[in-house]
Amino acid sequence: MTDVITRADPKPDLPVAPKRGSSKERWIRRAPLLPGLIFALIVTQVPFLFTLVLSTLDWNALRPGDRSFVGIDNYITVLSDSRLRSALVNTVLLTAGAVIFSMILGLLLAILLDRKFFGRSVVRTLLITPFLVMPIAAALVWKHALYNPAYGLINGIFGGSTDWVSSYPKAAVIATLVWQWTPFMMLILLAGLQSQSEEVLEAARVDGANAWQIFTRMTIPHLRQYLELGALLGSIYLVNTFDAIFSITQGGPGQATTNLPYEIYLTTFRKFEYGEASAAGVIVVILTIIVATFALRVISSLFRMEESR
């Protein structure tokens, strides 16, 4: 959907330096790559080029045959529309909320699981289970079986008759996402904790460092890359959240939980404003490229870490 994002970092050493062979040899090397690369180019880049073209047209599908070139008018409409701005803010809030809370919970759980105890692998299996439930099923179950004011489990256990979804729409969506994504963060952070060298930790203990000092001075710096990776990958997935909003709040009440994917979906398939939806899509892609450039930098540093092992 976009062009190659070039990285600012120096390239890691090649595992095997490609030989400067004849052009025939080079094509033999490329041959296994081509089917996958061409497939990805066609399926992901062509639609995006098409979006660019559509974004310059005044095209509402309810007025067939009436399509005219309007240049950047759609962009002006979309950028001056408060709906898009509020969708942008909601996207940031929902994504950041879900990523931060799932990260904190994931870290706590990873620390718990880093110890040896009876049935550790069973507990790990229990903990990853929320991540495996189909997202749309999870969202529907949370909405109807947990949040429902009359017979939902939350009010059933704690009493009261709070209508969670309409009183706290953002929190309701975030809680569901956090529940699903905490296992993901936990797995990444647990891998980070377990990659700490036991000998170094032991040496610190012998030198008289207490558990808190070891945690803040050694474990957290060691985990930094893993925290970054978890935050980035989590954001990549969560910024596209659609299932939970579609089924829990339908973007409401009002626009309280309408994020960019849901807003564009509404513009496309409810208002049929194809031109405006495309312009919004292009804007989202540009924003993503900005964020992704930073993301790729972090990923490539991790990638070097893996390479050097």
């Binding site: 639609p47 899509g281 989202v284 992704a292």
Partner: peptide
């Protein structure tokens, strides 16, 4: 390509 939001490609 994985980072690009699917929503931008939906209409085309």
């Amino acid at each position: 390509t994985k980072m690009m939001p699917a929503v931008a490609a939906l209409l085309p």
